[in-house]
């Protein structure tokens, strides 16, 4: 989404950009927050219930932060890159921390 000149073509590009940001902010934001919650729940050096509570309480701040970030960044591909990077790293971390058994058990 570069500078807009108000022409129909740019309007369309701009709309597509906004749509992409909304999808990234909601879907990507929730994915990042959910993965962070899951990862922190099994990695925080606390009792199990405390780790889950801490992670869940933080998750909504993380989600809000991601939404602000997605709308603040200048380029959509950059925002998408950061989000997918975070999802990949955390997904890998979760795999290593919780083991593959987690995914066999099936999420609700």
């Amino acid at each position: 989404m570069s500078t807009s000149k108000g022409s129909a073509g740019t309007g369309l590009v701009e709309r597509a950009g906004i749509f992409a940001r909304i999808v990234l902010a909601t879907g990507g934001g929730y994915a990042v927050a959910a993965l962070a919650t899951a990862l922190l729940s099994v990695t925080l050096p606390l009792e199990r219930s405390e780790a889950v509570t801490t992670a869940t309480l933080l998750s909504f701040a993380i989600l809000a932060g991601v939404v602000v970030l997605v709308f603040a960044l200048h380029s959509v591909p950059r925002a998408a890159g950061i989000l997918f990077g975070a999802i990949l790293v955390m997904g890998l971390g979760l795999w290593l921390a919780a083991g593959p058994g987690l995914f066999v058990g099936g999420a609700p």
Binding site: A33, A34, L35, T37, A38, L39, L40, S41, V42, R48, A51, V52, T53, A55, T56, S59, F60, L94, A98, L102, G105, A107, P108
Partner: peptide
């Protein structure tokens, strides 16, 4: 955000 319970408590 049930995912902490999902991972740490198997849901």
């Amino acid at each position: 955000m049930p995912w902490g319970v999902t991972t740490a408590y198997r849901g």
